[in-house]
Design a protein around this nucleic acid. Structure first.
Length: 238
DNA sequence: GGCATTTGACCGAC
DNA sequence: GTCGGTCAAATGCC
């Protein structure tokens, strides 16, 4: 049981590290960002990196998609290769706002132990372009203004190419990896990242365990608190 | 009329 | 049997 928890923790930390590095890269590229903010972002990336090491894992830092041990039926497996979780705070009680992509809601379920129902979205272009991306949005029990958003699968539709073109205004080596696929065949990276930009009214406040609303994964509380604090510090700057 | 949302039913894993 | 995820008909909105 502890092995599974450690693996899950490590996977979540991988996602955190990727996001921290992207944030660091973007802040570094923006000359309008105060120096203190850059230092804090660098500290964030370093701290998350240490957290990954502390998680006592090896090999996964290089990146691999994970489904966190979630069971998958056959028809679900196709969209489960890439999974990214973020927590979004909405300034208004309107739900997490548009992330730049077109989503169509196809279901809603009451989740055991969760105060609020979970909404299921898939790409609007699922049928026209075969885009298999889906996302799940669930309001956090502890804070109704926080939304846990879980992305499954990779966007392969044309609008992703448009977004990718906007993203390419930033240095392409945000993750220290080789350049992305060409626009006509855009795919998100195979490891958990934040493949989009949040609108100004939303703050990326962190990445938590899958069952965040139900108490998380039982990860080390001190570590979780530190990460939480770091993300809150960074989000407070912008 | 076309598209998005809602919601109960269904399916697979456990 | 329970639960999470998806389907698809019904409904609403523009």
């Amino acid at each position: 049981m502890e092995d599974a928890t450690a693996t899950t923790l490590a996977t979540e930390l991988d996602g955190l590290l990727a996001m921290a590095r992207e944030l660091e890269a973007r802040v570094g590229a923006d000359q309008g960002v105060p120096g203190a903010a850059r230092e804090l972002c660098a500290a964030l990336a370093a701290s998350v990196d240490r957290a990954v090491r502390l998680a006592g894992r090896s090999g996964n830092a290089g990146g691999r998609a994970s489904v966190n041990g979630q069971r998958r039926s056959g028809r679900k497996a196709a969209a489960a290769k890439v999974r990214t979780q973020v927590r979004v705070a909405s300034m208004q009680d309107l739900g997490p706002l548009d992330d730049g992509l077109s989503w169509r809601k196809y279901g809603q379920k009451d989740i055991l132990g969760a105060t609020y129902p979970r909404s299921y979205f898939r790409c609007t272009h699922r049928h026209t372009q075969g885009c298999a991306a889906t996302k799940q949005v669930q309001r956090a029990t502890a804070d109704p203004l926080l939304f846990d958003v879980v992305y499954h699968g990779a966007h392969t539709c044309a609008q992703t190419a448009v977004l990718a073109g906007m993203e390419q205004q930033q240095p392409p080596a945000a993750f220290g990896q080789e350049p992305q696929s060409p626009p006509e065949e855009v795919q998100w990276p195979a490891e958990p990242v934040t493949p989009f930009s949040f609108p100004s009214c939303c703050h990326l406040t962190g990445s938590y365990g899958y069952a965040a609303a139900g108490g998380g994964l039982g990860v080390d509380m001190e570590l979780e608190d530190q990460l939480d604090e770091l993300f809150l510090d960074v989000s407070g700057i912008f």
